[in-house]
């Protein structure tokens, strides 16, 4: 007991470092679990790290402020890394160039399915108007969802939350669904994952297959573009 009291000032001093340590440790733990379970989809490092940290934060008074401040430097690296997705894209460009028709048609079909089916299902189950407008962007990367949501009457923070949730769910189920529907072509698997689960799905599939990752990054960008331009236009036409 006396030791714990003596340690208290030290604990206060290191407290700002804990979010970063917890994030790196839980993600590394997730990676090891993934390796241990031979790539089982449920052992997804993003899913494991997020759930661990959210559970740990339930002991904190203002979880969002304290955590966000502690991992700011890590969050800053997401931008340059997203830009770096141009690299696998560039390396696969010769293979992409000969399959442009397949890329554009399948991404368009997927982007429409993603927005329409989510809104229809949530609407049938009685979700509120604000949720419906925020779930329309669920399959595009959170930054695009935040930019588009206000333009179609949704809430940017809620849209970002739903987008991240969709990314995590998509990264977990993509392997099963694509195996089950018989999609074996790595390029098609990449396109499907990029449209359905944007960056989080791309991170997952890039770790397994560089070419599938390149197609996933491409699909994520195109689907984001389609949602960013298409949804506000649709809203302008059909707005009540």
């Amino acid at each position: 007991m006396r030791v714990a009291v003596a340690l208290l000032p030290t604990l206060t001093a290191v407290r700002p470092l804990l979010p970063m340590a917890a994030t790196l440790l839980s993600y590394e733990g997730g990676l090891r679990l993934q390796r241990y379970f031979r790539g089982n989809a449920l052992a997804n490092p993003v899913l494991i790290a997020v759930t661990t940290i959210v559970a740990a934060l339930s002991w904190v008074d203002d979880p969002k402020a304290e955590y966000t401040a502690g991992v700011q430097s890590l969050a800053l690296l997401l931008g340059p890394t997203t830009v770096a997705l141009a690299l696998p894209l560039y390396r696969s460009l010769p293979r992409i160039r000969v399959s442009l028709v397949a890329v554009f048609v399948s991404v368009a079909a997927g982007a429409v399915t993603a927005a329409a089916s989510a809104v229809c299902i949530a609407s049938l189950l009685g979700a509120s108007d604000l949720i419906l407008r925020s779930i329309a962007t669920k399959s595009v990367t959170a930054a695009i969802a935040m930019a588009v949501a206000p333009q179609i009457g949704g809430d940017p923070a809620l849209a970002a939350g739903l987008a991240v949730l969709t990314g995590i769910i998509g990264a977990v189920i993509c392997g099963w669904v694509l195996d089950w529907t018989g999609v074996r072509d790595p390029r098609a698997r990449g396109l499907a994952t990029g449209v359905a689960a944007h960056g989080i799905g791309t991170a997952r599939i890039l770790a397994m297959d560089a070419e599938a990752g390149a197609f996933s990054g491409l699909a994520m960008g195109l689907a984001g573009l389609a949602a960013g331009i298409g949804l506000p236009l649709l809203y302008a036409w059909f707005a009540p």
Binding site: T23, S26, L78, I200
Partner: peptide, 10 residues
């Protein structure tokens, strides 16, 4: 890339 999605995920 996956690691950098943890802060926005939380």
């Amino acid at each position: 890339l996956g690691l950098f999605f943890v802060p926005p995920g939380v």
